[in-house]
Design a protein around this nucleic acid. Sequence first.
DNA 1: TAACTGAATGTAATGTTATTACATCAATTG
DNA 2: CAATTGATGTAATAACATTACATTCAGTTA
Lengths: 134, 134
Amino acid sequence: MSAHTLTKNQSLVLDALTHAEAPLSAYTILDKLRDHGFRAPLQVYRALEKLQEFGLVHRLESLNAFVACACREDHDHTHHHHGVTAFAICEDCGQVTEFHDAGMEERLAVLVKNQHFKTEKTTIEIRGHCQNCI
Amino acid sequence: MSAHTLTKNQSLVLDALTHAEAPLSAYTILDKLRDHGFRAPLQVYRALEKLQEFGLVHRLESLNAFVACACREDHDHTHHHHGVTAFAICEDCGQVTEFHDAGMEERLAVLVKNQHFKTEKTTIEIRGHCQNCI
DNA sequence: TAACTGAATGTAATGTTATTACATCAATTG
DNA sequence: CAATTGATGTAATAACATTACATTCAGTTA
Ligand SMILES: [Zn+2]
Ligand SMILES: [Zn+2]
Ligand SMILES: [Zn+2]
Ligand SMILES: [Zn+2]
């Protein structure tokens, strides 16, 4: 774990995601930050790229959208190294739950090992309906 | 399991995917099928939509691309109901391996059940390097 | 057969997401 | 100071996907 000093743009993007109730697309973030001087998509994409590197933001591949990492209980900008992260995404209310499970991780590790595959990044996204929306 | 009669466009798209060595984007498919009369993206997207319904094609969310289902050993157009499907995607050669694992499926089922979540669709994509490219 | 129906198709236009290219600025360092 | 590095600003373009509307086709029914 190591703390990061975020740039102004990175902070703004992270704040937008942290305060959002659902995943945000890059262009939605751009619109939210126009008042703070954002003018072009690249300002958002560049910040998102760094925030993902730092482990502070996740990209949801099945939505083309981004969420703040949920495993920072504190709000310092601490980089923590995730293992495999899975997301349950409610298609009704947009709520996203991030979770981690050692058993699943182990199972996946065995599977790819059997195929002599070297994993760089694993995406697990479960689309459906959350408790409140069933 | 039930056989489907594919339309001409659906057959053409499925053939393109079946003969490809790597996932194809919708626009790549469009280009491959221009000689067969394809002119617009929608022709591809409509065929892909049906083929996915039939379980003959999968969408790879992390690539915005599509692959023919690998679990049809025969080439009749038989709809088979998958459980959860996972993909190992080589970032070097593009090769995609489709696999299924009851253990992992069960593990996921338990996890979402604990959250009282109702699953509609599960995406598992592992990006990395295949045996040949390590 | 003629009319109706629903599925599939053709085409154009548009919307959404992401990247490339290039110029500028600020902090660091030798 | 000159050189380097990382961050930023801006414009243009590329890549991916959908909406809207007209037409065609096959099967069904009056
Ligand atoms: Zn996280
Ligand atoms: Zn919900
Ligand atoms: Zn399959
Ligand atoms: Zn490979």
